[in-house]
Amino acid sequence: MIRFLSRRVLHAFVILLLISVLSFVFFQFAPGSYTDAMRLDARVSAETESAWRTMYGLDQSVLTKYFRWMRSVLRGDFGFSFAYGIPVSSLLWPRIRNTLLLTSVALLVSWSAALGIGALTVVRRSRAVESVIRSSMALLLSIPDLLIALLLLLFALRTGLFPVGGMASLGTAHTVIAHTKDVALHLVLPALALALLSLPLLVRHVQAAVRESMCAPFVQAARAHGIPAGRLWLAYILPAAANPLISLFGYSVGGLLSSSLLVEVIMGWPGLGPLLLESIFSRDVHVVIGTTVLSALFLIAGNLVADLLLYAVDPRIRWEQ
């Protein structure tokens, strides 16, 4: 177990390093740089612009830039944001908390919904239910992220049931309970949007996994023995379906993180999304790379958790080790 874990952590570390190097290299290819927009500013002369380039080290080689960045990572700063003029870490930490809150709630909602819907279609074996679910999933797949978010906001605006975007209302931070309630209320729509976005894929996989395990000989045998439905599900079908689903779990973390980007932007959720988008457009290199490495970290962590769960659930894996 310890060996398994330490090996995976080592791998994760190597991958993160690789991702940071490649990010720097890719970024080098993208046209334009942070200071370009200054040249449209009537007050700024070409000399001042080039002085800023030198100040930010934009005129140095990739290698130098990378090592400078690495040094600052070791200091815990994760580089320096050109736009904000402060270390990237101080931008990332407050926002990553919000993003994690949103994605973990969305993860919970989408997985419970997917398990429910997936199991329902397989158990019911009703053509009508199946085709309703299939068409709504196909429709969901074809509605762009932004549109779902916008429609939900429109719903909030028309009904007044939920706040129209944002994370906390002004002046509700007096008590912890009031604040929590307020944030929870703000959380509903963005989490719902994210859950809806990831639902079609999850439902598909859950259906497949459950169907497979129901066809498995030992489940058939258990059913033939007359084991009650509840126990059949909990003790036989779900554990057997768990393996492919758990490994999907790790990937769904990555998927959620990337789709939360746009949802956060339109819903005004103060996470990494709006920051990342703005820094991509303004070529604020270190913010972008910091965010990339951070989301890679989450994806890898998600996969690691999935592997550990598999290790716990599936004896075959322990045996292989």
Partner: peptide
């Protein structure tokens, strides 16, 4: 592992460069 890593890489810079 390469698949995992490739999911997180900032490919869009390469695309921007490609467009350029």
């Amino acid at each position: 592992r390469i698949g995992e890593a490739s999911l997180t890489l900032p490919w869009l810079y390469l695309l921007l460069a490609g467009r350029a």
